[in-house]
Computed example of a mutant assay.
Amino acid sequence: MKKFWQLAASATLALSMLVACGTEKETETQQKEGAVVVEENNETAFPVTAVDALGNEITLEEAPDRIVSLTPSNTEILFGLGLDEEIVGVNDNDNYPEQVADKTRVGGIEYNVETIVSLQPDIVFAHESSMFSLESAIAQLEASGVTVFVVNNAENFEETYDTIEVVGTLTGKEDEAEEVISSIQAKLADIEAKLEGVEPKTAFMVVGGAPNIYVVGQNTFMNEMLKFIHVENAVKEDGWPMYSPEQFLAANPDSIIFTYEGDDETIKNNPAFANMTAVQNNALTVVDANTTSRQGPRIADGVESIAKAIYPEVFND
Rank of each mutant, 00 (worst) to 15 (best):
F258E: 12
V231T: 00
W240I: 07
E304W: 02
A289W: 09
V215T: 14
N93H: 15
I116E: 09
G302R: 02
M242I: 10
P253Q: 00
K268G: 05
P97L: 06
K32P: 03
M242D: 11
G296M: 05
T59E: 10
Y243M: 11
D122A: 07
G217M: 06
I267W: 05
E232L: 00
E85M: 07
P64K: 12
L15H: 15
N91A: 12
V106F: 05
T277Y: 00
A189M: 06
M222E: 04
V146S: 08
L134E: 04
P312S: 05
I184T: 07
S130H: 01
D263K: 07
P241N: 06
E110I: 14
T160K: 03
I257R: 00
I87E: 03
D238A: 15
T277N: 03
G172K: 04
F228N: 00
N156V: 02
T285F: 08
T259R: 15
E313W: 02
T71S: 14
T285L: 03
W240Q: 04
L81M: 08
E261V: 13
A50S: 11
K3F: 12
V207K: 01
L249S: 13
E110M: 15
V303A: 05
T259K: 11
E114G: 06
A177Q: 03
N152H: 11
A154Y: 06
I67M: 05
Y243S: 04
A53R: 11
D288V: 00
A8L: 11
S293G: 07
K268A: 14
V215M: 13
V51S: 08
A53L: 14
T27S: 15
Y214E: 09
Q120H: 15
A186H: 06
F315S: 01
D65C: 09
S305D: 10
T169Q: 14
E237C: 02
I257C: 01
V314H: 04
Q140L: 10
N95C: 08
F132D: 14
L188D: 03
Y96E: 15
S16W: 14
K32D: 15
